[in-house]
Design a protein around this nucleic acid. Structure first.
Lengths: 321, 321
DNA sequence: CTGAAAGCGCTTACAG
DNA sequence: CTGAAAGCGCTTACAG
């Protein structure tokens, strides 16, 4: 029972020709010893690690938890295992960065963090396949993202349909591309409705409760005060609602708020949060699929997940009174 | 410039003796070529992959996001990289399971999911070091966990201090060990205060908003109705508060609620949620440290993080009226 | 149809 | 002080 035939049989090499008898003996032996090939030895020989790297910004954002979940699931289906790195660490000293890229621990990378940092620089200067998830920018590799603009347009259309005309945008960080697209969607929606937007009704804030709270306060201090807010995240929508309580406003009677992205908690808030559900998990899965194709040598293109966003109507928006 | 001396110099082998001159030449060459050793080749030779596996249950729980965060951070400090697996997948077909364990992709495992499943079975039948995080059970390996009982006692003491006597426990799933310890802490606190607990005032529910909502409804239908609820999670506390709105109860006037674990969102809820902050990140870091020691051959013991839990007083609990 | 041999990129006794 | 050699566990032309 030569080791070479064994290897070929176990890997189902199509070019091998063995007697059914020999094959059976090999399979049986492998089974009884519960043989599993050593991944490192195999990786060394084949130069395929069957490992994917996933660089994530702050895991505290629910969005990222969804991405990691979808990525791990899909990677598994494709036969890959996933290594995670925290973007903060990754950017900083770059020790994990070295590990993943230079040490050849991965066949490719999925980047969910910003495109401006060292991660991308290192990547582009190297022949390692990578794809950006939930991130899109010209000339920095393949990206798989959501139709953020469509999602935000949906929010605006809904608010307009309710009768609002003073609609503000609680946007994300100015330099984050998803935030930019949501803002664009907001402007598209307002323009399509023939509505103007005073500059003071568009604010930028981190995707966090605190960020939403601070920005919400600014928005509510404007004159005229908006009767509705289309927020660029779930967390900032929650923060804005909290901000509205200080001046004694009630949601949705005095102020309608629509969030962006959905999570179980939205339904249990007071009031329950009306929000835009985006196909996040699908995005992560497609991103992994795209990365695997890229590794396989296929040429792939930027991709925007076309599954339409959905407005989940709950209690935080109503007709203006 | 022999490859062997080079290897020894670059790895700072203490037994090597080279002329400073040679050493300098090697270092310089490595630098200019930006040489990084291939992890797989090294792993194959040394039988150390410098990779740790992390098996997580549902990432949707914020608790797990904190664990993964702390784990990745600490692993990095110790020179390790981390591979994540979804517990659901892991338990089911066990394909990822094979990958991680049998293929020798990892030097050790951190298990944050239940101890009853296949994961543990496979682990104990194998010589691979592993430690359980936020999980504790007799005779299933080393575990690093929090003092859940102390945390829950703190919640009870606070409620008792406020003047409550009808305090209910919105517990976690009956078969989850963290939930069991929180329940024990609840009982200890009540006993210490000389308070009795009707059976109907202790309910079990999933650690989710929905679970808390359902269980909250049951609790509020009891007679006498509790004036306070000590919940075993943040999500279920939020669900319980939502449930209290249906019968028209107001928190905290009609019902005080204390959650377990803290997250930024708690502060922005209506009312802001009073909760017990537990040292989650520290737990994850210590768990990684423990695992690394175990891999190093040290004998380690179960560990309960002793950093005291903290009660974060916000607006969801007050004196009974 | 089957096996001996080379080699993936390292580390580490061992010999000069 | 330095280098040649073996070997980690695989896969894969190549020769019988």
């Amino acid at each position: 029972v030569g080791t070479s035939v064994a290897s070929r049989v176990l890997n189902a090499d199509p070019t091998v020709s063995v007697r059914p008898e020999t094959r059976e003996r090999i399979l049986e032996a492998a089974r009884s010893l519960s043989y599993t090939p050593n991944a490192f030895a195999r990786g060394l020989k084949t130069a395929r690690t069957m490992t994917l790297g996933l660089v994530l910004p702050n895991l505290a954002y629910a969005v990222n938890a969804e991405i990691i979940r979808g990525a791990v699931k899909q990677a598994e289906r494709e036969g890959y295992v996933v290594l995670v790195a925290d973007a903060e660490e990754f950017e900083r000293a770059g020790d994990a960065y070295h590990r993943l890229l230079q040490e050849r621990r991965v066949d490719g990378m999925l980047i969910a963090s910003g495109t401006r940092g060292r991660a991308i620089d290192g990547l582009t200067s190297q022949p390692l396949p990578f794809v950006l998830v939930n991130r899109r920018e010209a000339n920095v590799g393949v990206s798989v993202s959501l139709d953020d603009a469509a999602g935000m347009r949906l929010a605006v259309e809904y608010l307009v349909g309710l009768g609002h005309t003073q609609i503000a945008h609680l946007g994300g960080p100015e330099n984050v591309d998803t935030a930019q697209r949501r803002l664009a969607g907001f402007e598209q929606g307002m323009t399509a409705a023939g509505l103007g937007v005073p500059r003071s009704h568009v604010v930028h804030a981190p995707f966090s409760e605190q960020g939403g709270y601070d920005a919400g306060q600014r928005l509510l201090a404007t004159n005229p005060r908006p009767t509705a807010i289309a927020a660029a995240s779930l967390a900032s929508a929650i923060g804005a609602i909290a901000a509205s309580r200080t001046p004694g406003l009630t949601v949705p009677e005095d102020l309608s708020v629509v969030g962006f992205h959905d999570a179980p908690i939205a339904e249990y808030l007071n009031p329950p949060l009306t929000t835009i559900r985006m196909p996040l998990q699908e995005m992560a899965e497609v991103a992994i699929g795209t990365l695997v194709k890229l590794i396989g040598g296929a040429s792939v293109e930027d991709m925007v997940i076309s599954t339409p966003p959905e407005l989940i109507e709950r209690g935080s928006a109503s007709a203006p009174t």
